[in-house]
């Protein structure tokens, strides 16, 4: 028997000295390495994040600088394209690559902020409903039903237009509109955790309800929260893009991908790159977020896979 083996290398008596049991961390890391979706999604999200952080270094031009003498230059793969503007220029002569690069910032900031609001509201409601049950549960379920009945895009549009279209208004309006899914998911997980022995033990030990919620329930929801949060960022980015596309989200000249598609729509028949480029960027980021979220769920809780 090896006496100095670390805990992760405890030997199994029946199987001999060569069998080493992996630690839970190792199991998860191994699952992650084998999960293609998680890796692809993770890379897409990481790249977008890096592009957003290093936007000033990566963008060849100022994304706001207009030059009407250089309107609608096509991207480099066209005959008339130049390497000075690798992805061409838009209708106002702004460098398209720079706008797409800065667009990463807008999408990530907006997506993340909306998610923070939505997940905070949804988690609070979900934990309360799942833990207390009864009347609290009924009230939360009622609020979820009411929220789902309202057409989200339409209400968001009305709110943004009536209050005034700034980025903050878009974020707050959408954040207060998409918490329902988080609430439903967290409620279901909380119901499961509530019946665990360690919660009963904490109750028996006389812990306060707040303490149980914050130190017994919440940490055990962490995996779920990460999954919900990642998926909600993707959804929030899509909604922001739709709002900006309809001209009632982020206002020009901000380089939001949805807004760029909206601005390019007029010229798309002759200059299709104006909509295909920002649309592809949007698609890759949201796809990455969804793959990452699904991947984390598969890796942390493979038994719940559907």
């Amino acid at each position: 028997m090896a006496t100095s083996a670390p805990i992760s290398k405890i030997l199994d008596a029946g199987l001999g000295e060569t069998v080493i049991f992996p630690s839970p961390g190792q199991v998860i890391r191994r699952r992650m390495r084998r999960h293609k979706g998680l890796i692809i999604g993770g890379i897409a999200v990481l790249l977008t994040f890096l592009v957003a952080v290093f936007a000033p270094v990566l963008a060849p031009h100022d994304p706001y600088a207009q030059d009407l003498s250089k309107r609608l230059i096509p991207p480099f793969w066209h005959e008339k394209g130049t390497w000075d503007h690798p992805l061409g220029t838009d209708n106002l002569g702004r460098d398209y690559l720079s706008r797409v690069v800065y667009g990463c910032r807008i999408s990530l900031i907006i997506g993340f902020s909306i998610m923070l609001i939505a997940v905070t509201i949804g988690t609070t409601m979900g934990i309360l409903a799942g833990y207390f049950g009864g009347t609290v549960d009924m009230v939360v379920s009622f609020l979820v039903t009411v929220r789902l009945a309202l057409p989200a895009v339409l209400v968001a549009l009305a709110v943004v237009v009536l209050i005034g279209g700034s980025m903050t208004v878009v974020i707050v309006a959408l954040g207060f509109l998409i918490w329902a899914r988080a609430a439903v998911v967290i409620r279901a997980s909380t119901q499961q955790i509530r019946s665990q022995d360690y919660v009963a033990a904490a109750q028996a030990a006389g812990c306060s309800t707040i303490r149980i919620l914050l130190t017994e329930i919440l940490p055990n929801l962490a995996d779920n929260l990460v999954v919900v949060a990642t998926l909600e960022i993707g959804r929030a980015i899509l909604l922001e893009a739709a709002l900006s596309f309809l001209g009632m989200g982020v206002q020009p000249p901000t380089p939001s991908w949805g807004l760029m598609i909206s601005e390019g729509k007029e010229f798309m028949l002759f200059f299709p790159y104006l909509i295909t480029i920002p649309g592809t960027a949007l698609f890759i980021l949201v796809l990455g977020m969804n793959l990452l979220g699904d991947g984390i769920r598969d890796v942390t809780a493979p038994e719940g896979r559907t």
């Binding site: 739709a242 598609i261 796809l287």
Partner: peptide, 16 residues
Amino acid sequence: VMGQAMPSFWFGLIMI
């Protein structure tokens, strides 16, 4: 998975 990530307005424009 791809369907969930595709912005519907963009898909519409591409189809046009």
